[in-house]
Design a protein around this nucleic acid. Structure first.
Lengths: 341, 341
DNA sequence: TATATTTGTACAACCGATTGCACAAAATCG
DNA sequence: CGATTTTGTGCAATCGGTTGTACAAATATA
């Protein structure tokens, strides 16, 4: 009170009870009489008491802080995932601490350090594109702090993961293009060390083969699948002796870059070149024509990740069996791939 | 060590010194000999020691946590601001805790509570659209916790703020349209209780009047300036007896909605209707034609906000004079307003 | 009614670093 | 060379809740 901060000691003094009683009353301990609880609560609000998370965390060992590491929050996908995480986490009394790796491994590492220093109760993360070694994540696991990875995951056994079925998403997308009459479908793929791109590539390939179309090396272009990469990729594809009649990109940004190039060259979309992206970023609905894309069930993904984290926290002592959750993506068809039949 | 956690006590024991010496050695206290410091540091890394922020915070009173409250992280503007904040904050040894209000006052209030409970050393925030009473922010100020507001600020004296010159941004935008030959310029404006919209409206008005054009009530449409609002606003404007020949929207989303309607009706942009937005979201560059927009200097804004926060922290004891910082916005001209001369 | 159980609260150690104060040893000064 | 200042480290209290244990009173059980 003196310096504006009320503690449980102040409440205890006023009520002639001990701090431990106050603490228990506030946390709704069964052994405390409801009479005492009421008195404590009233005095607490009267004195404008606020629970000091820090002090509680020091003794109890848990901060009720959940760390979230994302490549970039301004990707609609990631921010939606965060929304899902927040919904579940707050419900369960956890505060969420978001940080961004900016797809940089060093930053990712320092994010993890910061979180460990802040004693977060768990970490939910999606790995930076650039990251190829996972010692920093392994450290989290070794310290027995619940870790849940989503979307961009790594091949480590003791981690729970939530991903969409990238294979299926790609397969659906390519099948759709074939259904629209496309026969020469190119693919803009990302870093092969990230599973998402690996699986999407497989889905692409299998869809082609299952429909009796050949898989051609020159039709698959690897990059970081950013806007510029999409532009470059499209240029490259247009320079081929036999041009593709469709492009399936592993990211909406790459697809967008491709679209820009096509427009600059006055090629008709989807008649001369159909396009499909991946992520279903909101701008896909704004551009002209709308960009067909694979939706990644972002909020669900976040909710699942948070729920798994909670389970893992609850199973504290006992061994927790890491869960792998796979969600089914949805193909959102827009003008960029809808050919008049 | 026993349970994987090394403390300064473990280090002290190994080195036959006291924990206080270790603490001081680690924090580079001038009174500790460099010999001891070296020994402590080596032992620390050997034992894999990690500083426990929680314990330190409890005693020292500062958590080195900076809370940031944003309406939505997936707005490119806000995420850029965060980037700026992070740059400065991390440099100074602060971790950043981001939360979203989703433009909802209740959520905003609970965000603040959560942060106060977590004992953040300061809060940087942009107010939720919906918020009209500021008691929760006032509480932060009353508790003497540094508060810096940016972009969406409120009329309270004891707060530092960072904003762009919204008036000037609007003025530039409208003058540009007039320069392109537009004579009947409509305006999509937002909630008048938010300064940003109020000032933009004034800039719009003054630019018209300074160029000898009339300010017409029916040309100003108030809404939440989201995509749908832009659509509705455009419909309304097109229904006027005398249509406008340009629309200046206080948000890119509203401008985008307007653009969609224009395209659906096959009206030419910018010939029949020029468009200018506000925010310079990335999609403005993707759409066809590119959307002219006012850039808000987002990263700078974040950096300034963080710097002011730091100053305020440093000035701990003494009275800190709140600073109002105003940045100059930049008009990014794209196809939606560039008429062939 | 005597005994066993439950209920309600108090006591005190504890989480792990920080920090004002004390004090001896070393360095500097007159 | 004695007095003063500086340097390096230790002591112990402290931040504010949490929690295992103890114990008296109330209640239930036999």
């Amino acid at each position: 009170m003196a310096n504006g901060k009320t503690t449980i000691y102040d409440i205890a003094k006023r009520l002639q009870v001990t701090p431990s009683t106050v603490s228990r009353a506030l946390s709704n301990h069964p052994r405390i009489s409801s009479k005492t609880k009421k008195a404590v609560q009233e005095m607490a609000s009267q004195l404008n008491y606020r629970h000091n998370n820090i002090a509680a965390a020091l003794r109890s060992g848990h901060t009720h802080l959940l760390g979230v590491i994302l490549p970039k929050v301004n990707r609609h996908f990631f921010s939606s995932v965060v929304k899902g995480i927040e919904q579940v986490a707050r419900e369960a009394g956890y505060n969420v601490m978001i940080t961004q790796s900016y797809d940089d491994t060093a930053t990712e590492r320092s994010n993890i350090s910061a979180m460990l220093q802040s004693q977060v109760d768990g970490i939910i993360a999606s790995i930076a594109t650039e990251t190829t070694e996972f010692a920093h994540f392994q450290r989290v696991i070794n310290e027995n702090i619940p870790l849940v990875l989503f979307d961009r995951v790594m091949e480590i056994s003791d981690v729970s993961t939530v991903v969409i079925d990238d294979y299926q998403g790609a397969y659906k997308a390519v099948s759709h293009l074939i259904g629209q009459g496309c026969r020469r479908i190119a693919h803009l793929t990302g870093e092969p060390h990230l599973n998402i791109y690996k699986y999407r590539l497989r889905g692409y390939r299998d869809a082609l083969e299952d429909h009796g179309l050949p898989y051609l090396e020159e039709m698959v272009i690897k990059s970081q699948v950013q806007l510029e990469d999409g532009r470059a990729g499209m240029e490259q594809l247009l320079a081929l002796a036999e041009r593709p009649d469709a492009v399936f990109a592993s990211s909406d940004y790459a697809a967008m870059g491709a679209m820009q190039v096509l427009k600059e060259r006055n090629l008709k979309i989807p008649e001369e070149m159909a396009l499909v992206g991946f992520m279903n970023e909101p701008f896909t609905a704004f551009v002209e024509p709308g960009l067909t894309s694979v939706d990644q069930m972002s909020e669900e993904m976040g909710r699942f990740a948070a729920e798994i984290f909670l389970e893992q926290v609850q199973a504290k002592g006992k061994a927790f069996v890491p869960r792998k959750t796979v969600l089914t993506p949805e193909l959102i068809i827009r003008g960029s791939s809808r050919k008049a039949q």
